[in-house]
């Protein structure tokens, strides 16, 4: 994988950006790199990168998130520390961008610094199992809306097609055609396919790079 200094994950609401961002930050850390993860989600009141804060910090990853995330303070907020992600160029930054174009608006203020440094990957996370991105054309429309909102063009695609705990290899295989079409329509490369780690060995080798991920645990 071609690692950039800044990696931003955005995509349709519920595409799995947060989980990918958390797993990618852990991956970078496992390479021995200094890593910080920024939770730029101003849309979701529940299920955020902050849920994984203890695990990330135990791995030595700095987590930058609103003090209000997961609290009862229902305001979209971004802490000033978020600027560290663009200012501290010795640390690898992973950003979890909120859902859809509304979520991507928050990225706008960091965009000039990210574009100026020009060492970033802006990744579109795609899940074909979501109702509003069942085909490449509808995914492309969302991609364009996000780009318009934040002013940054995407540089690659991650296939994160899944049905949560019910994901089977066929779930992912059913997405291959849509992903290939999305690659063509957008002229962007597929960077990897994210797969729950126990499913990774069950997939064929000709679908590109496989990125094994762990799911966040729940008590239900």
């Amino acid at each position: 994988m071609n690692v950039k200094r800044v990696t931003l994950f955005a995509g349709h609401y519920g595409s799995g950006k947060t989980n990918i961002a958390v797993n990618y930050a852990l991956y970078l850390r496992s390479l021995g790199l200094p890593v910080a993860l920024g939770d730029l989600d101003i849309v979701n009141p529940y299920y955020r990168a902050k849920d994984s804060q203890a695990e990330l910090e135990a791995a030595g990853i700095r987590v930058i998130a609103s003090a209000y995330a997961n609290s009862n303070v229902d305001v979209p907020a971004i802490p000033q520390e978020m600027y560290a992600l663009t200012e501290d160029r010795q640390t690898h930054a992973v950003l979890d961008i909120g859902g859809d174009d509304r979520g991507a608006l928050a990225l706008g203020r960091y965009m000039p610094a990210i574009a100026e440094e020009n060492n970033y990957a802006f990744v579109f996370v795609y899940n074909r199992s979501r109702p509003l991105t069942r085909d490449a054309k509808s995914a492309l429309a969302i991609m364009r809306e996000i780009e318009a909102a934040c002013g940054l063009p995407f540089t690659g695609i991650v296939n994160n097609t899944n049905l949560g705990r019910e994901t089977v290899p066929e779930t992912i295989l059913a997405s291959i055609d849509s992903v290939r079409e999305l690659e063509q329509l957008s002229a962007l490369p597929l960077l990897f396919t994210a797969v729950r780690s126990d499913l990774a060995p069950l997939l064929p080798h000709d679908i590109g790079e496989i990125f094994p991920i762990a799911l966040q645990k729940t008590i239900w």
Binding site: G14, N127, S129, R130, P131, R134, N162, L163, G164, E166
Partner: peptide
């Protein structure tokens, strides 16, 4: 075919 939905979305579509 199964799709992945938020509870709020599922009830709205239903």
């Amino acid at each position: 075919e199964k799709i992945l939905m938020k509870g709020n979305e599922a009830l709205a579509e239903a």
